[in-house]
């Protein structure tokens, strides 16, 4: 049962991810990206990281992607015009893809040898309590550094968006 659910949502995630690249219209790509995030959230849920799953949907699918869609709608971006592929892309595309996938498979194999398989629901520290405790004790410095980075981003956005006053 868990395996079936995993396979279904893994396939949906991969298909949506390919669709993000293949689609010519920005809105279709954005919606496919929402699909990727939704199915990733289900995979997190299966592993036992329920807080991460909920945060993934609330923050990424529910807030950030809505802003993406909003901007695409606001600018009324049209469909992308396909030009013929360049000779380099035609020749090197497929071999490079195979090489990348092979490298990824090799590293995954090296890092996680046989026997260290993932157990569904095996992750026991996914509750909001555990996450909060980890963020405010063990990882306090990275957490605060990230919030300062975000603050800098907000200030930068305001500087860029304000009109010249003179």
């Amino acid at each position: 049962m868990t395996l079936a659910i995993f396979l279904i949502f893994a396939v949906i995630a991969v298909v949506c991810a390919i669709n993000v690249v293949v689609q010519t219209h920005p809105i279709s790509s954005a919606i496919s990206l929402v699909g990727v995030m939704g199915s990733l959230a289900v995979l997190y849920l299966q592993l036992g990281a329920e807080f991460i799953a909920a945060a993934q949907v609330i923050v990424y699918a529910g807030a950030i992607m809505v802003l993406f869609v909003f901007v695409i709608m606001l600018l009324n971006a049209g469909a992308e015009v396909k030009h013929g592929r360049s000779l380099t892309a035609q020749l090197l595309g497929a071999p490079l893809l195979v090489a990348l996938l092979g490298l990824l498979a090799y590293f995954v194999q090296r890092l996680y040898p046989r026997g260290a398989s993932v157990v569904f629901g095996g992750f026991k520290h996914g509750t909001p309590l555990d996450i909060g405790r980890a963020l405010f004790t063990t990882y306090l410095l990275p957490f605060e550094a990230t919030s300062i980075l975000i603050l800098i981003g907000i200030v930068g956005a305001i500087v860029l968006a304000q009109k010249e006053l003179d």
Partner: peptide, 25 residues
């Protein structure tokens, strides 16, 4: 009963905006 019930409701309702935004577009 979910142990993240409140977050679940928030997550689902935040997805609802796509219906309206896509209908408009």
């Amino acid at each position: 009963d979910l142990n993240i019930g409140v977050l679940f409701v928030l997550a689902v309702s935040s997805m609802g905006v796509y219906g309206i935004a896509l209908a408009g577009w």
